[in-house]
Write a protein that binds this DNA or RNA. Structure first.
Lengths: 195, 195
DNA sequence: CTTTGATCTGAACGGCTGTTCAGTTATCAG
DNA sequence: CTGATAACTGAACAGCCGTTCAGATCAAAG
């Protein structure tokens, strides 16, 4: 039987993570104090240390969680179909996944420099894993003649940069629906890798 | 005759800006203290205030200077030629200008949230001005039939995001020369806006 | 009820923050 | 040289920082 004596941890824990996510995204890791996070949760600063070893671990945990989610969701996409099919799936997945959690995405890109070296290496390895998945699609498409790409490494980074850029302007209440946005980007991505 | 009594300001001033640029880019605005900047320059913290009203003004001045340089350099590019010519010029210009000053670029994108509202509005207006220049090229190309673009606004942001992404990986001692990089990106940009 | 232990408070720790300013130093004009 | 003044120092200001911890609080188990 689970220990539940005097336990609020299943409420407070997630609330701390949510508050930290929002504040880090809005003001930046260095600009946010533990006291601000605590105030947002309605608790004293000391209480945060029941849930995280220190401020750095809280940041790392948020980023690690985001990357794990990203890779898990991508793995669930499946590998079937032609390279063109797979590239379209990747494009649409990237856009919908990223626009769905803008704060986590923002933090995971902007706060890399706030990570201690060991933590940085871990996050970067996960990011590389994701990039490699796209690069494989492009290479397969080149091998099969579906894509014409001068440099698959650069093309990978160029496509990801282009797609992630959606987050800088997309709002769900905006002019275009998510599906329309996906369509526009898929057209551009597709054309950029085909003669 | 210029006042020069006891003057080191023409040496110290630029050194402060250079140190601030490097430190802000590396660690982030909020994470860098005035004392760190001063130490880098070899001066006490108080001396910085002969050159900037406060820390915020120092950041804003760096960003404003960068955006002014960007717009001036872009204006010097000229407007002649077909939309395709102009798009190629824009693409190559954007890459070479941005890879040439990675720290200023980094700050100008990442530290927008560190600007006070009034300063933010000014920088954002300058950025919009630059984006509008690209959008004009795309619209002219659509009107003339050279480009096929579903949504010129989105295409503008997509192209800029893709091009600015070069800064995340480009190193002048890397595998590809700047000219090769420009060529690869120009191919992708060109194809992404043409059927 | 009492007991138990997870949860949280509130105060304290040393240290760093941006900024100000009286006083010192260094450079140049005359 | 003297006088002027730009440039800089060094100390001080009030306030916030991340983190720790003894003690209070509270919900569930027995």
């Amino acid at each position: 039987m689970a220990r539940t004596t005097g336990s609020h941890s299943e409420i407070t824990g997630p609330r701390i993570r949510a508050a930290a996510l929002r504040l880090f995204a809005r003001h930046g890791y260095a600009a946010v104090s533990m006291r601000q996070i605590a105030t947002e949760v309605g608790v004293q600063a000391g209480a945060l240390y029941n849930y995280t070893a220190d401020k750095q671990s809280l940041l790392f945990s948020l980023m690690r969680g985001h990357m794990d989610e990203l890779l898990a969701a991508h793995a669930a996409l499946g590998q079937g179909g032609t390279p063109t099919d797979r590239l379209e799936r990747f494009t649409r997945f990237h856009i919908s996944f990223h626009t769905d959690r803008p704060e986590a995405v923002f933090i995971s890109y902007m706060e890399l420099r706030s990570l201690e070296p060991e933590n940085f290496r871990i996050i970067e390895a996960l990011r590389r894993e994701y990039e490699d998945a796209l690069e494989s699609i492009l290479r397969d498409g080149m091998a099969g003649g579906a894509f014409t790409i001068a440099d698959p490494k650069i093309a990978t980074l160029a496509v990801i940069a282009m797609l992630t850029g959606v987050n800088t302007w997309y709002r769900s209440a905006g002019r275009l629906s998510l599906d329309e946005v996906e369509q526009v980007y898929w057209d551009m991505v597709h054309r950029s890798v085909t003669g």
